[in-house]
Design a protein around this nucleic acid. Structure first.
Length: 531
RNA sequence: GGCUCCGUAGCCAAGUGGCUAAGGCAGCGGAUUGCAAAUCCGCCAUGCGUGGGUUCAACUCCCACCGGAGCCUCCA
């Protein structure tokens, strides 16, 4: 019973054609996917996580549909900014890159991004890069000029198609390179080294790769000359992806990529940057940037920008948990601009709490952790229960709805609606069967089967995979705390039996004040630490 | 100036040429509760920026305008 991916009507929006197209792989059942990763010269900010989270989700989904996916994310560890920043800090470029790569990786881990197969570094690929440049020169698409090598944009009639621009309107890179270029739009493939800069020997003298060439060289090395999906932020469409595309197509005489997928950018929710509000530009007032402690934004536009010093993702994750941030990112469509701030993140957390409470409830009834439940990892593996299960019958249409939204350009925002509907159906089932009071084996079995469906769908989004550390059911809260709470609840229950509500309410209010919420249910009192 | 994209209830946010325009947060009623909380049920956009046009029919297509964002230089 192999799963044939072609049976699923997946459609993706392709930036190159500006339309949604049926997803068909080059090689049946296999997907090569490349995402432009970070230039590791500074700490990551939340905007850098949009791509990794959505592509992580895309990979999970494609794998679920039966594809064998190879996902590559590159690390740009040589670049002008890296050199500049490392000199400022008095460390080597390699030290800086190592530190910032570690920061990036830990952020990915916090957000549950663990599907990446290969993370090649530019500096590990110098030989491939040089070989690629040599091929371009041989084919007449690049030229050497005083130790630099440039791509000759004029030689590529298709240049500009991805970003819908014509080559002659380009300003090109600034600096002193202009005099060495044939035309302004030409971009560097190889940059000659100035004294003291990190460099590698090449046929054109010591130097380093230009920005775009590494992606062409590394994607070819791992995924081949033509591969299925290339992704990145919308801001990379021009010039980065346009240039990559030109290099690879001209070098190989075949298309580089089947589908170009671009995620929307993130904006901070400053007063001025608010959608519908007046822009700072028009208002002509001095912007007050830095309202968000975790990010520094471009004061004029509200855009999150690392060049303005944005970063501090780690503290944001500490405040909100990685799962909350991930869920927040997946609640809207990946191509849309997302407004980011503490408020929307808090709201995502509130929404998530309902699921966590359901999971606690599940554990009280079944004695099992939701996180230990098995679930189908392939779309075709799902089998309906042999015994009629009213809960599963209710959940299956929601599962179909969820999957059809994911089929449609990975509409995670639409799909989350079905997750909420599932949670409601499960709660309704528990209420209707009074499962917390009379734990009927038939009901419990039905509940578990139902919960597996919710779990299966959530796993596609990369959420609810493991317990959130703050949950009271988690032993990280401490055994002692659990025992103390047990004692407090027992004493309070005694007070309630005596109808001494003044005492019981005082206990509840007191706990509330220190961040512990309690609920009196029919089968006892539950509690959790509020985040 | 050129090129893209967006404008859906108090807020966030899916979606569609034609049945009752998802879901979440907040709010309001009800069930439940000693009271709460949680959970469940119900309510909450005669309308999808504004004005035209195409069409039997548009929120969905086209045009104009207003407002917002991005790219055109490094940027996820």
């Amino acid at each position: 019973m192999t799963d044939s991916p072609t049976r699923y009507p997946i459609r993706v929006y392709n930036t190159l054609t500006k339309t949604k197209e049926p997803f068909e792989t080059i090689e049946p059942g296999r997907v090569g996917m490349y995402l432009c990763g970070p230039t590791v010269y500074a700490e990551a900010h939340i905007g850098h996580m949009v791509g990794p989270v959505i592509f992580d989700t895309i990979k999970r989904y494609l794998a679920f549909c039966g594809y064998q996916v190879t996902w590559v994310v590159n690390i740009t560890d040589v670049d002008d900014k890296l050199i500049q920043r490392s000199q400022q800090r008095g460390i080597s470029m390699f030290q800086l890159a190592t530190q910032m790569t570690a920061d990036y990786l830990s952020n990915l881990q916090s957000l549950g991004v663990d599907q990446i197969d290969r993370m090649p570094r530019a500096t590990d690929s110098i030989d491939e890069i040089i070989a690629f440049i040599e091929e371009l020169i041989q084919r007449g698409f690049a030229y050497e000029s005083e130790g630099d090598v440039f791509f000759d944009v004029a030689k590529d009639p298709e240049y500009g198609r991805l970003s819908n621009r014509s080559a002659d309107e380009q300003q090109g890179e600034g600096g002193g390179a202009a005099s060495r270029k044939r035309s302004a739009g030409d971009f560097a493939l190889w940059k000659s080294a100035k004294p003291g800069e990190p460099s590698w020997p090449s046929p054109w003298g010591d130097g380093r790769p230009g920005w775009h060439i590494e992606c062409s060289a590394m994607s070819r090395g791992i995924l081949g000359k033509t591969f299925d999906i290339h992704g990145g932020g919308l801001d990379l469409v021009f010039p980065h992806h346009e240039n990559e595309l030109a290099q690879s197509r001209c070098c190989h005489g075949q298309p580089m990529v089947r589908y170009w997928l671009h995620n929307g950018l993130m904006r901070a929710s400053t007063e001025a940057g608010k959608v519908g509000g007046r822009s700072e530009r028009d208002a002509g007032t001095e912007p007050n940037a830095g309202a968000e402690p975790a990010t520094v934004t471009d004061a004029v536009s509200g855009k999150i920008s690392r060049s303005k010093g944005a970063g501090g993702l780690a503290s944001l994750i500490a405040r909100h948990t990685g799962e909350r941030i991930r869920f927040f990112l997946l609640r809207s469509h990946y191509r849309s601009t997302t407004i980011f701030g503490d408020e929307p993140l808090l709201e995502a957390g509130t929404a998530l709490e309902a699921f966590y409470r359901l999971f606690d409830r599940f554990q009280r009834i079944t004695g099992k952790s939701v996180y230990d439940l098995p679930f189908a990892s392939r779309r075709a593996d799902f089998t309906t229960p042999s015994i009629p299960n009213p809960l599963v019958s209710e959940l299956l249409p929601l599962r179909e709805s969820f999957l059809s939204k994911m089929d449609d350009d990975f509409n995670t925002g639409g799909a989350t609606a079905d997750l909420f509907e599932m949670a409601r159906a499960i709660n309704r089932f528990i209420d209707g069967q009074s499962l917390e009071e009379n734990k009927s084996p038939v009901g419990i079995e039905a509940l578990q089967q139902g919960m597996q469906i919710l779990r299966e769908m959530a796993a596609l989004l990369g959420i609810f995979l493991k317990p959130v550390p703050k949950s009271s059911s988690d032993d990280s809260s401490g055994k002692l705390v659990g025992e103390l709470m047990g004692l407090i609840i027992k004493l309070r229950a005694d007070a309630r039996v005596r109808k001494d509500f003044a005492t019981s309410d005082a206990v509840r209010d007191g706990l509330q004040a220190i961040g512990v919420a309690i609920q009196d249910g029919k089968s006892g009192t539950t509690w959790q630490v509020k985040s």
